[in-house]
Design a protein around this nucleic acid. Sequence first.
RNA 1: GGGCCAGUAGCUCAGUCGGUUAGAGCACUUCUCUGAUAAGGAAGGGGUCAAUAGUUCAACUCUAUUCUGGCCCA
Length: 1055
Amino acid sequence: MYKPVDPKVNFPQQEESLVQFWEERNVFKKSISQREGAPEFVFYDGPPFATGLPHFGHFVPGTIKDIVPRYKTMRGYRVERRFGWDCHGLPVENLIEKELGLNSKTDIERYGVAEFNEACHSSVLRYVKEWRQIVTRLGRWVDFDNDYKTMDPDYMESIWWVIKSLWDKGLIYEGYYILPYCPRCSTVLSNHELSLGGYKDVHDPAISVRFKIVGVPASNKDPALADLANGSTYFVAWTTTPWTLPSNLALALGPDIDYACVIDGKERYILAESRLSAYYKHPESLQIAWKKKGRELASIQYEPLFPYFADLSAKGGFVTVLGEHVTTEDGSGIVHTAPGFGEDDYEVLKGTGIPTVCPVDAECKFTDEVPDYKGIFVKDSDKAIMERLKQEGKLIKRDQILHAYPHCWRCGSPLIYRAVSSWFVKIEPIKEAMLRANKSIYWLPAHIRDGRFGKWLENARDWAISRNRYWGNPLPIWKCDTCGKTVCVGSRKELAELGGEVPEDLHKHHIDKVTLPCSCGGTMHRIPEVLDCWFESGAMPYAQNHYPFENKEKFDEHFPADFICEGLDQTRGWFYTLTILAAALFDKPAFKACVVNGLVLAEDGKKMSKSMRNYTDPSEVMDKFGADALRLFLMNSAVTKAEDLCYSDDGVKEVLKSVIIPLWNAYSFFVTYANIDGFTADSFDCTDVENPLDKWILSVCEKLVADVTAGMEAYDMQAAIGPMVEFVDSLNNWYIRRSRRRFWKSENDADKKSAYRTLYRVLRRLTLVMAPVIPFVTETIYQNLKLENEPESIHLANWPTEEPQYRNLELERDMRIIRQAVSMGRALRVSNDLKIRQPLASVQLITRQPDEQEVLARMEDILREELNVKSVFVHEKEEDLVEYHAKANFRVLGKELGSEMKEAAAKIAALDTSAIKRILAGEQVPLTLASGRTVSLDASKVEIVREEKPGLKVLNEGTLTVALDTTITPELLYEGYVRDLIRGIQNARKEAGLEVTDRIKLALFGDDELHTALERFSQLVAEETLAVGIEWTKPKDGITVEAGEKSWTVSLQKA
RNA sequence: GGGCCAGUAGCUCAGUCGGUUAGAGCACUUCUCUGAUAAGGAAGGGGUCAAUAGUUCAACUCUAUUCUGGCCCA
């Protein structure tokens, strides 16, 4: 006896109690411990911030990260799943700043770094409880107890090891980053902050300055350039920031830009040919000494404008360089280059040996390096500098420009782009390893590999890993105040060995107190920067296990990951940082397979936004429809393959209605009738069943198992779920509907038992393959249906493998034919206005295909019942019923005929019936084209299309034609009346709330014809309605049942 | 500004190697069926396949350009 099933189940409630059930029985832990010693399936979880609540964006990867490990567990792997928390970084700092009312780095320092960091520390895990609750409610099994946190000292120490390893490989260097900087707030602004403040149109000076040429490289043998250093030849360069001119170290030319040397009185000026008109009124009448491409003018030395850095010419400064960023839209086509104040400037000089100078202080006032302007705010020095250049005869043009310039979002000051000291990881030496690693990764969708991710890798630039912030893992690099020597520390032990006292907490406010003695006798202080938090998540494979200080073997077994899954936004985030570090440290990928999911948008196609309230809170969705429904909805969409998904409640309702409820109904049907009949399953074996319907669903069920397995193996949720949806439909709307009578009133006990055993097996296998996707409802079903010796949870069970002995491909195809014939028969009935309840004498099924004929004949009883006809005739005489038309098979003939295709198609369409019949009979029919070419047509080159002859009550589709005998004899008419009556009685039974097994007594009345009908078919009425007595009297309180034009009066009572 | 993805019915999406009436589900209309079902069945309406140009005998499909949306980067 199975536990009775409530067909009106409350799924969300049921799910809540299952969460508890799993908790109480430790099922999750058992699912791992029972695989002790089994092969590992390695999964890495990308750490989120716990500073906000989980939202739909977390649900999609979260669900995939649950499904795949559940599946792999069922397949026999041991799958550890540790949750991780991202604890450091700007998101946290920003939040705390807001809460403490701090507005800038100056504010934080005034408030106290120690206090600030402690505030971050205490609130970074604020929503951990809520996360755990919501993730668990979603049905995701993940270990929150044994989680990792990027701020744990052990985690932080592993990061030190990673940095030290990169350091030892020579991959870490100190350089500069040119960043927008607010002189008033004395702070760097992030990209995000840049967009907050917005650009304002402002007027700035735009000046052109001449630079005297003093030398041509010896390697340049161009005779035209021989006299360039004659003291009267100049480059003309352009800038909108005169204050950067004292820091000028180079001039950039575009390699493919044409430059002209203009003879202007005693002097000669070099500038872009296309810019001449900006400098001369009549460029056409100019005297041009020569024209050269930029690339021919590289490495030419010029005289520094100012004396401040003149000695840097020894280091290669004050020369022309080539840069792709140079354009001829503005200015002279030659760009003044000050690497300390422009990103392009910096990039173009990188690696040339020319140093970066940035002679300004925290408030962007000139330092003593520029004594003439010392203490003056850079922008305020523009006028004085221009005046001086003018007096020295170096300023040749002075304009104003109106352009969009960024401003600080806090104070509105115009921002200064300036060099900020920064630490980098070199990418070039490891790029090959990264590309190689990427090639071996299985991406879903596949285009990510060579598309978004691959392209990003190819164009990767050095990774800036330091941040001038506070709440992060401090870079373990110490620098000597005296000699400038640096040392990178790879562990706590190493720090102690170097003479430092190791604090318990490794955060900035503690570790910065640690100083080390330098070999020069000086003192080493830690550099002030903390790490980019992306570095920490990218180092998670090592740091989560405190590698290499502990768990060495464990790490070897758990690297790289077999599988990870995150959103599309992580291509430049986690996927990237994982890949860099794994390639640099081990020359391996960090993960073998990566499922990339898309973004969940609101129903209106916009971003989900709390302030706009354009979406339903996920917890509410689970309370209303259940986690299974939400999971299935999300997983059965392309959001699992990096495409966007518009979330809608209706979509969730839809999967509930089309999949979960039908599944539940199939289960409830089984339990209801099994209990009535006292059936209890004791095995899954159905090899001996004979009923074709049973054999069919058993076969389709194995196909389901095979298809879902293939989908799961490819990590393709949609591919795995599609077959489930289809199977649930076939099970309900064909197998169970067709078998209903076998369950509830079969005289043949063996057949009935076969139906029960079949349905049992199929339900069990279906729920097994659905268990990873919808873990709740499948568990409920399992709990009721499981055999005695089976595990206590479906999630501890093994994954089914396809059992080929049940597959029967012919039968699967046959059933398709039958279903098509039924569908056509029903359409015919409707078009002839013959209700399905009216029995008809016969249906004719006409096809020339021998296999179709055989199938239709063999399954004739299905057709008889479905179409409510007395007999079924199958034959092949279709000429009387259909007309033949011929259509060219374009795919086949097109390849053969090419441009003659059109003509052939027309001629084929015009073929007469006799020719078509010859093709049907298997003959070759020649067709001659205008070119004289002849093709011989056969069934492969021509498609024969059948069409019903007009006026006949037949229907054709493909090779099958169906005709109904529409004559209704009195006998059939009577039976029709009775069928109407039976339906009326059944409805009445239902309305009276009778159990399906209750017996009834009937009182019936109607006209004489109905009386006759009843007399003929009273047996049928009694059987169908479980009536133990039928009386022909006019009942007092009877209901009326329509039967065509007539009506029955019916009254029933429980016997 | 650059890279990637997407644009097909009112909505959500399929559409194979380019091959001739462009499909499914939901929704809608009409009819029907029903003692497991919140269902099932039949018919119907609904399309400039984002746009333009090109390649081809043939383009939703391939190429180029443009437009729109999204993500990331600058």
